[in-house]
């Protein structure tokens, strides 16, 4: 019993310890790593990824997986750019309406994703992967492969206006992280994610409408992807069909490395935050100490396997496909 407890405690705190160790490691190799300017750089890179990670955390907590984020982010980013332009192209004018609209679009894409998974009874990894392809396809269709610029100074203020050294988008991400935490801990929906992830059959036997919880979860994730999409657009000032590229790998890696268990029921948005920071600190740190940044994917790939292996209670798993 005590051994188990210590194992649980270890797994719970390991991601945070890893993060601290990484910060110390990189600072030791190059003291400029530990500076407000560099932290701001990490935060800017991490903000959109954090939103995607928070979204997918809900899904993974349910014991499902969502691989549609690349398509959803691309499609919502492109939609935002177009709607924003249609509405006058300025946040000061009618352009702000694009923001709630795109959040709804994200939610609808997520809803579709969830419906395909639940109603057609397709495993979520494949349903969402296919829907992700559809999303990217739709983004290609909308743009015809072109880049859509968003250069409204007010909107770009998310990146350019700084407060205490960090740009506004970091605060926006922090705010929605808080929203995610609130949903996770203070709403029935959030708690039901844990019930489904902890024991779907049992939750069903207790009278929970598991189908509805699942579909709502995917819709919620879609909304968070839409937020991520807008932050990316604010950061790079443009949207295109590859805006969402690489989010799948980075966000899943982050969430898993942060300590959210792939089989559901364990972890939450704080784990997502720690995971995203680990990934981005590695990314940034490798550049700061002068290593080529393209090694990132390989390192992350190994890291994610390591994280899954360390957090899996072997006795619990009978066989894995």
């Amino acid at each position: 019993m005590t051994r188990r407890l210590s194992r649980e405690t270890m797994i719970k705190w390991a991601p945070l310890l890893v993060l601290i160790a990484l910060v110390i490691f990189f600072t030791a190799l190059n003291p400029t790593f530990f500076s407000l300017r560099n932290f701001a750089r990490i935060a800017i890179a991490a903000a959109p990824a954090l939103m995607v990670a928070v979204g997918v955390t809900f899904i993974i907590v349910m014991g499902s997986i969502d691989l549609s984020m690349e398509g959803t982010v691309s499609l919502t980013a492109v939609s935002f750019a177009f709607i924003f332009a249609q509405l006058g192209g300025s946040l000061a004018g009618l352009g702000w309406i694009a923001i709630p609209l795109v959040l709804v679009i994200g939610g609808v894409i997520g809803l579709l994703n969830g419906l395909v998974h639940v109603k057609l009874k397709i495993p979520s990894f494949m349903a969402s992967l296919a829907m992700g392809f559809v999303g990217t396809g739709a983004a290609i269709l909308l743009t015809g492969g072109d880049i859509v610029k968003v250069s409204d100074a007010t909107f770009r203020g998310l990146l350019t206006v700084r407060w205490l050294g960090f740009p506004l988008m970091v605060y926006v991400a922090a705010f929605f992280l808080f929203v995610g935490w609130f949903i996770q801990t203070h709403t029935t929906l959030g708690r039901n994610f844990y019930a489904v992830g902890g024991g779907e059959d049992l939750a069903h036997a207790s009278g929970l409408n598991v189908t509805r919880v699942r579909v709502t979860g995917f819709a919620l994730a879609g909304v968070f992807y839409a937020i991520a999409a807008m932050l990316v657009v604010a950061r790079i000032g443009q949207a295109e069909s590859v805006t969402g590229a690489n989010f799948m790998f980075v966000s899943i890696t982050s969430v898993v490395v942060g300590g959210v268990a792939l089989w559901g029921g364990i972890g939450g948005v704080w784990n997502a935050l720690v995971g995203v920071l680990i990934v981005n600190v590695i990314d940034n740190g490798m550049v700061v100490i002068g290593l080529p940044d393209f090694l990132q994917d390989g390192v992350l790939g190994l890291l994610v396997i390591l994280a899954v292996v360390l957090s899996t209670d072997r006795k619990m798993v009978s066989f894995v496909k």
Partner: peptide, 13 residues
Amino acid sequence: FVPSFISTLAVGG
């Protein structure tokens, strides 16, 4: 015991 869609994604990385 890592599901194949994760392990292959990681190896892909």
